[in-house]
Design a protein around this nucleic acid. Structure first.
Lengths: 205, 205
DNA sequence: CAATTTTGTTTGTTATAACGAACTTGTCGC
DNA sequence: GCGACAAGTTCGTTATAACAAACAAAATTG
C-alpha cells in the first residue's frame, strides 16, 4: 500500500468515525428526548449501558445488531438513527401564499403541500382538489411507502398495480404507493381529499 | 429475566439476524451487479474478502465501519445498503361508519380519526370541525411531539404554553404539542381543519 | 446538611469481528 | 485430461466490541 492507499485508508477511517459520531449524538438526543437513563435504555434494548455510553461518546465502532437494538428501543428505523440532526422552532406558520401548489398534467387536480418540510423525507401531507375528470398519476415513491387518502367531498378512484378502488366522502383508503399509482375523479362533481404519504418502509413494521 | 424477557431477547436477535441477512444479500447483489469479485471489492473497500464472504452468507454481525466501507465501495448510501425487502401490496379502506369520532368537552368540536391504526403510536391524523365558540383542549402528548394544523375554513386560535397564534383558511401552523395546548374557534363561523400529530421524538431530528 | 439513590464512566473479562494465509472449488485454455 | 489461475471458504491469530461489576460524580430526599 503506497501513499495513495494510505490516503484512502485515512479517508475510510475518518468517514466511518464521523458516521459513528453522528450515531452517538442521535442516540443520546433521542434517549434524552424520551427522558430515558442509560440504564432504562439498556433494559429496553438489551445493550449494556456501558456500551451505550461508549456509543454516545463515539468511543466504539458498534455492530449492526447493537445499532439495530438501539433503533428498536428508540422507536426509529435504523436509517433514521444513522441520519443527521437538526433543531426546530417552537411555532411555525405557513401562510396561504407560502403554501406550495402542484398541478396534475391535465390541470384538473390541485395539490396543496401542507406537510412539514422537516419530515418531507418520510411524511408528506397534501390537500387534494380534483375537478370532474381529473387524473393524478404518480410515479413510485420510496420502497415500502404507504399513502392514505381521506375523501371529504365527491368520489375518487384509486388504481395501484391494476387494482382499483372507489373512495367516497367520509371514507379513507390506504395503499402502497411505492409503485406507480393513479387517482381519478371519474364522478360528475369536484372532489376534495386529504392525502398523507408515509414514505418510510418502517411503516410496515 | 423471565419468560417475557427471553421472548424479547429472541425477537431482538431474530430481528438483527434478519437485517444482517438482508445486508448480505444486498452486498452480494450489488457486487455482482458491478461484476466485482470478492478480491476486487476487498481492495476497494479495505474490508478483508473473507469478511465480505461471511457478510454475504450472513455469518457475521458486522460493525458500522465495515458496513460503511462496503457502502462506499459499492457507491450506495448506508441507508440503501440496509434497506429491507419488498412486501405484499395492499388496499385498505375505512368507511364513514368505521371512522371513529371524538367530541370536545363542550361538544362544539368534532374530530374524525382518519389516521392509520398501524402508525397511531407515532402519527395521528384528524379532520377537525369546530363550531363558533368551540374549544378543544388537549393534554401534553409524548415528549417532542409536533402538531400540524392546516385550516381550510374559518379561523382557529392555537394556544401553547401561553403563546397564541391565529390560523386562517389556507394557512398551516406547527407547534410543539408535548405540553397542554388549546385550539379555539373564537370566530363567528364554523371552522374546518386537518390536524396531523407527529408523536415521535424522532421529529426533532 | 448528610445519606441515599441515580446516573454515567471505568475496568477487567469474555466473545467475536476482522485480519491474512492457507485451502478448496470452479473456470479456462491448451 | 492437466495446469494455471481465479474465486470463494476455512482456519488460526489479533484486536476490539460487548458484557457485568465496580467506581465516581451528580442528583435527590428527608
Amino acid at each position: 500500500m503506497g501513499v495513495e492507499g494510505r490516503e484512502k485508508q485515512k479517508l475510510l477511517e475518518a468517514g466511518a468515525q464521523a458516521l459513528s459520531g453522528q450515531l452517538g449524538q442521535t442516540v443520546q438526543r433521542l434517549r434524552k428526548a424520551y427522558n430515558l437513563s442509560l440504564s432504562e435504555l439498556s433494559q429496553q434494548s438489551g445493550v449494556a449501558k456501558s456500551i451505550i455510553s461508549q456509543i454516545e461518546r463515539n468511543e466504539t465502532n458498534p455492530t449492526l445488531a447493537t445499532i439495530w437494538r438501539l433503533a428498536q428501543a428508540l422507536d426509529v428505523s435504523i436509517e433514521r438513527v444513522l441520519q443527521t440532526a437538526e433543531d426546530e422552532p417552537f411555532l411555525e406558520k405557513t401562510s396561504r401564499t407560502d403554501t406550495p401548489i402542484l398541478l396534475s398534467d391535465d390541470g384538473k387536480c390541485r395539490l396543496e403541500i401542507i406537510g412539514w418540510i422537516k419530515t418531507v423525507d418520510w411524511l408528506q401531507c397534501y390537500e387534494l382538489s380534483a375537478d370532474a375528470g381529473g387524473v393524478l398519476a404518480s410515479e413510485a415513491h420510496q420502497r415500502g411507502s404507504v399513502e392514505c387518502l381521506s375523501v371529504r367531498a365527491g368520489v375518487l378512484e384509486v388504481e395501484v398495480a391494476g387494482v382499483k378502488e372507489s373512495v367516497k366522502a367520509g371514507e379513507t383508503l390506504r395503499y402502497r404507493c411505492d409503485r406507480p399509482h393513479i387517482i381519478r375523479n371519474s364522478g360528475a362533481l369536484p372532489a376534495q381529499a386529504n392525502m398523507v404519504c408515509i414514505l418510510k418502509a418502517a411503516v410496515m413494521e
